[in-house]
Simulated assay, not measured.
Amino acid sequence: MVLGVTFLTLSYPYEATKRIVPTTLETKIAKKRPLSTSEIKSFEQKFALKAVDSKLLQLKLKDKWYFSKRNTSDHIDVISLSNYNELMALQHREQLKKLALNEAVLVNYYASLAPVNESFTLKDGSQTLQVKKATNQNPFAFANSVVTVIVSDAKFNELAQKYPNASYAIVSFDGKNMRDNEKLVQAFKKTKVAYFSSYERNKLITNANSPTFLMISMISILFFVTISTILYFTARIEELSLSEEYDTLAKLGYQIKEIRHVVAVENAWLFFPPLILGLVNGVFGILGASYLITDSLTTNWYSRLGQPLLYTIGLFLPIYLLVYYLAGRSIGKELKEYIEPTIYKM
């Protein structure tokens, strides 16, 4: 259980960055585009990436809106449904269905399934967007867009015509196994364009939490060594206390190989019930810890339970079986030295 929670604690920050920075790298483009089309295509070809150019409208609100208890925004970032779904396809996430002309969907800053009933009145008072639905699937890094509102393509075109000076763009780059690609970040720095990357975010979280990770890992290793040592010496004490009974088996004609088989079965009853109970305990322990550590609304079951269990079993089981084997081997050697002289005397 401790080992599983350790893996959960180590792996979850990487899962969390998938919401904080959902694409490998993204950059906010002003009216005067500092990143040319040829540069975008060059990055796509060199690093096997796909780029999505998103057009947004940053519209001022009549009244400030609290997107959290303490934080407010004086504007909303409007994106069209087709553009949003293109980003969801790039990020391999669920897309939204068709929206009515006056229907809008709010991207939740905090993961929440609470019903939404918000109206955003624009600063000039001529437009009001009514939000009845919300999603936790944010298309952009929160540093680039906090209050994102998704509208139908028809509504977006209507707003774009009315507020032509409110438009700006965000270019999102993504590709298979590219979230931790340092070379991409180093190459993009040369463009002198501001950006947000998953690689740098992961690196920041790892460096900031390395003392915590080290402490948790050391506690896990300590438990691991303690349990293995207890089982090893318990097996030796239990089995060697039965030396006289094994000696009797030898006198009755049992071979050393057969006696070792008996020892292996006896040790199995000592080692495997705790293993099974430990796995059951670990499942419930990791599941309980996941509700304290992870965001259960935006992470899947594999991230919360499957991955920690897979890593735990992959590391723990081979070492556990090795301790079982070494204990049986050690007992077998000692029993052989104890039994054979008796057999020879006969």
Score class of each variant (00 low, 15 high):
residue 4 G to K: 06
residue 5 V to L: 09
residue 6 T to G: 01
residue 8 L to S: 04
residue 10 L to A: 13
residue 22 P to L: 13
residue 27 T to W: 02
residue 29 I to G: 00
residue 35 L to F: 08
residue 36 S to A: 13
residue 40 I to D: 03
residue 44 E to V: 09
residue 45 Q to C: 03
residue 50 K to W: 01
residue 54 S to M: 06
residue 57 L to M: 06
residue 58 Q to T: 13
residue 60 K to A: 10
residue 69 K to I: 04
residue 70 R to Y: 13
residue 71 N to R: 14
residue 73 S to T: 15
residue 75 H to P: 11
residue 79 I to E: 01
residue 79 I to R: 05
residue 82 S to Q: 09
residue 87 L to D: 03
residue 90 L to P: 02
residue 94 E to D: 14
residue 99 L to C: 01
residue 101 L to H: 14
residue 105 V to K: 10
residue 109 Y to C: 10
residue 110 Y to I: 11
residue 113 L to W: 06
residue 124 D to A: 12
residue 125 G to Q: 10
residue 126 S to W: 03
residue 133 K to F: 06
residue 133 K to E: 04
residue 136 N to A: 14
residue 137 Q to Y: 12
residue 138 N to D: 04
residue 141 A to K: 00
residue 144 N to P: 01
residue 147 V to D: 08
residue 161 Q to T: 11
residue 166 A to Y: 07
residue 168 Y to E: 01
residue 169 A to Y: 05
residue 170 I to V: 14
residue 171 V to S: 03
residue 186 Q to H: 13
residue 190 K to M: 08
residue 193 V to S: 03
residue 206 T to C: 04
residue 206 T to V: 11
residue 207 N to E: 15
residue 208 A to E: 13
residue 218 M to H: 02
residue 221 I to G: 00
residue 222 L to M: 12
residue 227 I to G: 00
residue 231 L to F: 14
residue 233 F to E: 02
residue 234 T to A: 04
residue 235 A to Y: 00
residue 235 A to E: 00
residue 238 E to T: 15
residue 238 E to A: 15
residue 242 L to D: 01
residue 246 Y to D: 01
residue 250 A to R: 05
residue 255 Q to A: 12
residue 260 R to H: 11
residue 261 H to W: 10
residue 262 V to T: 11
residue 268 A to L: 08
residue 268 A to P: 00
residue 269 W to M: 13
residue 289 A to H: 05
residue 292 L to A: 12
residue 292 L to Q: 13
residue 292 L to F: 15
residue 296 S to E: 10
residue 297 L to D: 07
residue 300 N to T: 10
residue 300 N to I: 07
residue 302 Y to C: 01
residue 303 S to V: 07
residue 303 S to E: 04
residue 306 G to N: 01
residue 317 L to A: 10
residue 320 Y to C: 00
residue 324 Y to H: 11
residue 327 A to L: 04
residue 331 I to T: 02
residue 332 G to Q: 05
residue 333 K to D: 00
residue 337 E to Q: 13
residue 340 E to F: 11
residue 341 P to L: 12
residue 342 T to H: 14
